[in-house]
Nucleic acid binder design. Sequence first.
DNA 1: ACCTGAACACCGTTCAAGT
DNA 2: ACCTGAACACCGTTCAAGT
Lengths: 190, 190
Amino acid sequence: MSTRDAIVAAAGDLLDEAGPEAVTLRGVAQRVGLSHNAPYKHFADKEALLAAVATAELRRRADAPRPERGEPLAILKRMLRDNVRWAVRHPARFKLTFGSWTRHDKDLGEAAHAARKRFVEAVAAAQAGGALPPGDPERVSAMLLALGHGAADLALGGHLSREGKGRADPEDLVDDLFDLLERAAPRGTP
Amino acid sequence: MSTRDAIVAAAGDLLDEAGPEAVTLRGVAQRVGLSHNAPYKHFADKEALLAAVATAELRRRADAPRPERGEPLAILKRMLRDNVRWAVRHPARFKLTFGSWTRHDKDLGEAAHAARKRFVEAVAAAQAGGALPPGDPERVSAMLLALGHGAADLALGGHLSREGKGRADPEDLVDDLFDLLERAAPRGTP
DNA sequence: ACCTGAACACCGTTCAAGT
DNA sequence: ACCTGAACACCGTTCAAGT
């Protein structure tokens, strides 16, 4: 493992263990066993390091072995539910990956584009089978991803009622939207 | 205006003008014309000040005069579109208000609860008129708010395709979800 | 009750220097 | 090519002291 990779891994570990405010260049360097400014030999600044962490996270999730068996709609549902579960379980990685990047990082842009492309293709496959309503698959994808993203983010902030009758997990809301879409689909349940 | 209010206002202005990283206790104090640690006489720490900024923002939006004329569904649509427009236009205030609050702030919790309550009531009114599908209004509210929140957040991060055929404004996605809901409503268009 | 000024530990970043 | 150590400006926070 290169020093660069070790720095990225250490930053990711710190993120998981102690949250984003614990990810300091000094702390990362110490964890790898380097002097406090060794990271500057591998990254232009802190933001570039964080972009590398986000890129690694997107690639890791893309390379994860997925059993893509079953109906297209079932595969799509699994993808979105996985997204939401990952966001809720790794809030810091989720917020970092989908945060606002002031500078455009080429690798990060490509990794994010590839991830979205896979999702759009899954939507198109479900549409082709008549399990989802027709229309621009990018548009339907955006709706699904926005709901998943928002449900996860609101849940993380404690803005989704967790008790009583209004109780709704992020995954429940994803299911609700799929129900609506199936109802409007050519082959959907009426 | 009390010193406390002046500090909150200055923090909010800094947020709008230069983003969250520009909101330092020292910068806020300087803007009000106080010494660098005068804010500590009014707030326990920086997080308490930020909670006060978020609370003020929620109350300001709640007190804004709204023409609540028209059908319940139209009123509800306007509420959610306003939310999304506000989020896109004031990203820093939006992210602050709906971020994760590690400590529970009583005022902020109450203001957020009041805002959500108004929204749930608007949903219930639209359901009562048959313009939305029946079911727990808190659940339907959560779905609408999650989609609006996610669409705004993704758009702010540049994760919503802004060009070509897949182009989708956050408000477009809100409209798409309303279309699906209306289609499933008792009095909806088939 | 409210404010000031000095001080501390910490952080991102830069620079000169080492191998 | 990669790393170290000193230094700078900045930040949140604390403390003793002032009115």
